[in-house]
Nucleic acid binder design. Structure first.
Lengths: 193, 193
DNA sequence: CAAGTTTTGTACAGATCGATCCAAAACAAG
DNA sequence: CTTGTTTTGGATCGATCTGTACAAAACTTG
């Protein structure tokens, strides 16, 4: 009495990853549903049956991206084998290494959609708040150790660093080479010591 | 022998300004030709007759934006009544004051189009190179005066500052309030002294 | 194998996209 | 006023957009 019917022939998370990359490279508006079909290898029916709409698919892709990025970044920030300043440096190094060429889906979405889609703007703000809090905690620890300059509020320092990371990503998308990005990151750390 | 025919009933520069604002607020893809008609108050024929295509209109609007922004910024950088560091501070102050809410068309375009339109990417790179050169010159002067730390190449410092400015603009578009932007700008200057 | 349920491919709907066409309107020159 | 030229408004083009409808295919269960 419980026929389970035809199962899916694709993996939902893999499809989500493919869609995420498509949005990442071309942005929300410039990625058509046809592009999404080709990127995922799925037919229109499968996409709409699974993800409801292009916007909903984008929101899921965005949260997947944020979760993955934050997991990696928080792992570096919580690495107890390094000092706070070294952790911050590791985060910046990773940004420089990762963002070579294409930018960052979070920054791209902030620029493209935050002013127009309040729901997405709210998700981005939650994400930013999380990153700020974790960064601020590490900076405060560095200040207690005396490793990081104590003249400023750790929240202000965190806002500064998050802004610099956005700036690095914009610079990368604008064509800056890796050496230039490394210069930016290294100079940014001068403000902490 | 030289009939001059029907003259235009609109001002080309005003139309360009209106189009620029439309692109600025919503981005290139999300601004339709219909939106451009409403923003400028012109009919489709007038727009296409004057600006050839949506893309050409965008390119003209973008260069107009860059010219206006650079003129204001270079005026601050060349203000001989202030010291080099004070000029840099003035530039950052202006960015914070200007970018309250909507971001910056240059940053937006870098994120939305630089990866996809080589011609626009080239225009953006020329603009960035100009800003870097002017900024670097002022920083070098500050280093000669001893007002700015001499430990780093002025070009590297300039890249850093331009990236911070991009970061401030992204933060603004992400909803950061003015106090937060001021914190970022003030902290950024710590790296120079 | 048969029944029941979901997926999948295809075709298509309705709207909107950028861009063009064309005739009427508007103006300068003679 | 006539002539010549350009602008202007409106209709319209073909392409493409997101999303839906529907029937055939595929698979599990009894």
């Amino acid at each position: 009495m419980l026929p389970v019917a035809r199962p899916r022939t694709f993996d939902e998370d893999r499809a989500l990853d493919a869609a995420m990359r498509a949005f990442w490279i071309n942005g929300y508006e410039a990625t058509s549903t046809q592009d999404l079909c080709e990127a995922t290898g799925l037919g229109r029916s499968s996409i709409y049956n699974t993800f409801v709409s292009k916007r909903d698919l984008f929101r899921r892709a965005l949260t997947r991206y944020m979760d993955a990025m934050n997991e990696a970044q928080f792992a570096l920030l919580d690495d107890h084998d390094r000092s706070p300043l070294e952790r911050v440096r590791a985060v910046l190094d990773r940004v420089v290494a990762t963002e070579a060429g294409l930018g960052c889906l979070t920054v791209n979405t902030t620029v493209e959609l935050a002013g127009r889609d309040t729901e997405i703007a709210a998700a981005l703000e939650r994400d930013t708040a999380q990153r700020l809090a974790r960064m601020s905690a590490v900076l405060a620890a560095g200040q207690r150790d005396g490793e990081i300059a104590g003249g400023r509020d750790p929240d202000a320092l965190a806002r500064y660093l998050v802004a610099v990371i956005s700036g690095i990503r914009v610079a990368a998308q604008g064509g800056a080479d890796r050496a230039a990005l490394e210069d930016i990151a290294a100079t940014a750390l001068d403000a902490l010591v």
